[in-house]
Structures are given as structure tokens and as C-alpha cells.
């Protein structure tokens, strides 16, 4: 099979996995324990990483834009730049990229190890569906948890920008906060909070797909884990572009 044929075959298999996920979405009621456990592992356990990611993104954004705006005496615009930048773009994208690495690698390595040790075959052999037992709980957990994590990154980023702006450019905290909040329109919030749902869905499904198709021992597992993170990260950037260019203009 040529490289191109393999790619088409892979896309077909991935599409079938997505079809399976939608077809068996209702099975989540039989797998609540697994879903809650995944929510804890994907969501709660990622809190510190997202907190740090959001905080430093907001701080760097405030410093970089602050230095440029200072030359025009327009430091009052830092709040608006940080707020819109975090909510519309950087909050969702940084959260997505960090979770693509953390959650994507976790899902692929777990499912890949299960595939290599015949545990996936065992599930099927004993009449259980790997999609229902393993993929759907992870997908739902990502769909539910990515939104609050993005919200945390947004808020922490704006707060970080506010503190740096106050210390470095002597902006007033209350003015900064008021400007940051009032600059946000419903359209900004809608786009900013719609992105993580798409990011979460694709990170979960891509990483599960690579996990379930692992073969070739530990080398294959390592390769598939890298692929899962790379493909998820690349797709996040593509989806972000589509939202910024197409969806934003349609709204």
C-alpha cells in the first residue's frame, strides 16, 4: 500500500470511528464511572498546567503589547488587547495545544498499550465495544472539561496581564478590569467558547484512533503517540484559522 493509499485508508477508518461514536453516544449512561474518572484525569488533573499556561500567556501578551503601545502613549489599550487576545485566540489555542500534548499522549499511550497487550481484543471477544467502553467516555470527558479549562486560562491570563500592566506600565487595576470586561462582545465569547468544544472533540477522537490502531510493539506505540499529538496540534491550528477567518466573518 502506498503512502497516499494508507492516508486515505486512515481517513476512512477515522471517519468510521467518528460515525461509531455518534451511533453509540447514548451508551454513556452505562459507563458513567469511566466517564467521571476521565473527567477527573483530563480536567481536574490538568488544572495546574492550564493555570500556568494561561497565566504566562496573559503576562507575555501584556508585556509585548505594552512595550509597543507605550511608544504611542496608548497603554490603556493593553487591557483590550489582552482581553480579546485571550478570549478569542490565545486562551482556547494554548489550552488546546497543552491538552493535545497531555490528554492526547495519555489517551494514545493507554489505548495503544491495551491494544498491544490484547486487552482491546479481550473487550471485543467478551462482547463489549471498545468504542463504548473507552472512546466515548474520553470524548465526553473532553467535551465537558475543555470549556471550563479554557475559561480558567482566559481569566487567569487576563488577571496576569492586569498585574503585569499595573506593575510595569502603572495601569489602574480597576480601569484595566473594566476595560477588559466591557471590550468583550457576545460574538467574542461565542467564538472563544465554541472553539474548545471542537478542539476537545478532535483531540479525544484523534488520540483514541491512534491508540486503537497501534501495532508494532513499543516502537509503534511511541510513533502513534507522537502522531496523535502532532495531528491534534496541527488540527487545532487549522480549526482556529477556520474560526478566525470563516466563522468570525459569517457571524
Amino acid at each position: 500500500m502506498t503512502r497516499f493509499q494508507k492516508m486515505i485508508f486512515g481517513l476512512q477508518e477515522f471517519s468510521l470511528l467518528i460515525k461509531d461514536i455518534f451511533a453509540h453516544f447514548g451508551s454513556v449512561k452505562d459507563n458513567w464511572t469511566e466517564t467521571i474518572q476521565e473527567m477527573y484525569l483530563i480536567g481536574t488533573k490538568s488544572f495546574f498546567l492550564i493555570f500556568l499556561g494561561g497565566l504566562f500567556t496573559g503576562i507575555i501578551l501584556a508585556i509585548e503589547t505594552g512595550h509597543q503601545l507605550e511608544t504611542f502613549g496608548a497603554t490603556a489599550w493593553i487591557a483590550k488587547t489582552v482581553s480579546l487576545g485571550m478570549v478569542r485566540e490565545l486562551g482556547p489555542v494554548i489550552t488546546g495545544l497543552l491538552l493535545a500534548a497531555r490528554t492526547g499522549a495519555k489517551n494514545t499511550s493507554e489505548l495503544g498499550a491495551m491494544q498491544l497487550s490484547e486487552q482491546i481484543d479481550a473487550l471485543r471477544a467478551f462482547g463489549a465495544s471498545p468504542v463504548e467502553k473507552l472512546v466515548i467516555p474520553r470524548t465526553i470527558a473532553a467535551l465537558v472539561m475543555f470549556l471550563p479549562l479554557t475559561l480558567i486560562a482566559d481569566i487567569v491570563g487576563i488577571l496576569g496581564g492586569m498585574l503585569v500592566s499595573n506593575q510595569t506600565f502603572h495601569s489602574d487595576i480597576s480601569v484595566f478590569w473594566n476595560t477588559a470586561v466591557t471590550s468583550l462582545k457576545m460574538k467574542d465569547l461565542f467564538v472563544g467558547f465554541l472553539k474548545p468544544i471542537f478542539f476537545g472533540f478532535f483531540i479525544a477522537t484523534i488520540s483514541c484512533y491512534f491508540g486503537l490502531t497501534t501495532k508494532g510493539g513499543t516502537t509503534g506505540l511511541g510513533k502513534n503517540t507522537i502522531n496523535a499529538v502532532v495531528y491534534s496540534s496541527a488540527l487545532i491550528l487549522v480549526i482556529d484559522f477556520i474560526f478566525t477567518k470563516v466563522v468570525w466573518e459569517l457571524l
Binding site: 486487552q119 481484543d121 479481550a122 471477544a125
Partner: peptide
């Protein structure tokens, strides 16, 4: 039923 080589 099946008993896998690696037990699974």
C-alpha cells in the same frame, strides 16, 4: 470464551 496468550 477465549484465553489470550498474554492473558489480557
Amino acid at each position: 470464551g477465549i484465553v489470550f496468550q498474554g492473558n489480557a
